[in-house]
């Protein structure tokens, strides 16, 4: 939404009055020509390399610090997910972003080596405090490396920034919100954990879309048309409001958050404290004990 209004402003500055088709063309053009770039939800490798070369992007590596020190995508800064999770209040997130030199208009691309789940949680947090221009790298660090693309070892530091704060509650859900959504026909709660965990216990009325369903062999997310078809099969309307959750800190469900967005569903919320908090609050849950499904696993 924010993205769109920014673009509308630009358009108005240029004084263009035109039909929708024309508007779209202009927006596309501007995307290419103007600075800063407006990123899609997922950033492809070529786009990132171009942005890095032009020095027009902040790349955020969310792996552990020692992994970052062994090698990372050029110009990237280190933000281990655990640093963010140790205090994920909006004030703390802003502080972190300022330390990484991310300003309001800085395009940000986040990557990890955990099929995009950790990167998703960080990217969602940035969106939450009002930084919309953030994107997930379409591949993991291993994927990047395996393609033989450039990496570097030097630690990067950028001048501190001063990011504004404009919390986007439209992408956030807490336990109370989820509890109220349970019996609301227009809201769909999605459990992003693997199937056997879901069967064992889940939030009543939630549906299971395991994170394993939305990734492809060579990218952290399937292509949008496939994701759309999956959602259609499930009877999930693109106008529905969706809340995603997973086991404990909102990583797997963070990835599903981005998958659903990619599939064209606009109203998606993340319940970052997820099932761990839900259980600790003693909220109701559905357990399925009529089958011994765990014994089917060869793990």
């Amino acid at each position: 939404m924010r993205c769109l209004s920014d673009l509308t402003q630009t358009k108005n500055k240029n004084g263009i009055k035109s039909d929708n088709k024309l508007k779209k063309n202009i927006i596309k053009k501007e995307k290419k020509m103007m600075s800063p770039a407006t990123l899609d939800l997922v950033c492809d490798v070529d786009t990132l390399r171009t942005l890095i070369k032009k020095n027009k992007v902040r790349v955020v590596d969310v792996r552990k610090k020692d992994e970052y020190l062994k090698g990372h995508i050029p110009t990237s800064v280190s933000l281990p997910l655990s640093d963010l999770l140790s205090d994920d209040s909006p004030e703390s997130i802003i502080k972190i972003m300022n330390n990484l030199g991310i300003a309001d208009n800085t395009p940000v691309v986040v990557y990890d080596d955990t099929f995009g789940a950790l990167a998703s949680r960080v990217a969602w947090s940035f969106k939450f405090i009002g930084h919309t221009n953030v994107s997930l790298l379409e591949v993991t660090y291993s994927g990047w490396k395996n393609m033989g693309l450039e990496i570097e070892k030097k630690s990067n530091k950028f001048p501190k920034s001063s990011h504004s704060i404009d919390i986007d509650y439209s992408i956030y859900a807490d336990a109370e919100y989820v509890e109220n959504a349970r019996n609301d026909k227009n809201k769909v709660i999605i459990d992003s954990r693997e199937r056997l965990n879901f069967l064992t216990e889940h939030i009543p009325n939630s549906k299971n879309i395991p994170y394993t369903m939305i990734r492809s062999e060579d990218a952290i997310l399937r292509n949008p048309s496939e994701l759309k078809r999956f959602m259609e099969n499930r009877g999930i309307d693109s106008n529905s409001e969706i809340i995603t959750y997973c086991g404990s800190v909102g990583t797997l469900s963070g990835l599903v958050f981005f998958a659903l967005k990619t599939a064209g569903i606009s109203n998606v919320k993340l319940y970052p404290k997820s099932f761990k908090e839900w259980k600790s609050l003693g909220k109701p849950k559905i357990e399925f004990k009529d089958a011994t499904y765990w014994d089917l696993s060869a793990e």
Partner: peptide, 29 residues
């Protein structure tokens, strides 16, 4: 199996391979 089932497959006594606990709506996929 990883995408729609439980990450394990099961060889049956009739030489089939079975995927268990697939959401009905995902069967078509």
């Amino acid at each position: 199996s990883e995408t729609f089932s439980i990450g394990s497959a099961h060889v049956s006594t009739r030489q089939n391979i079975q995927l268990h606990w697939v959401q009905l709506e995902d069967v078509s996929e």
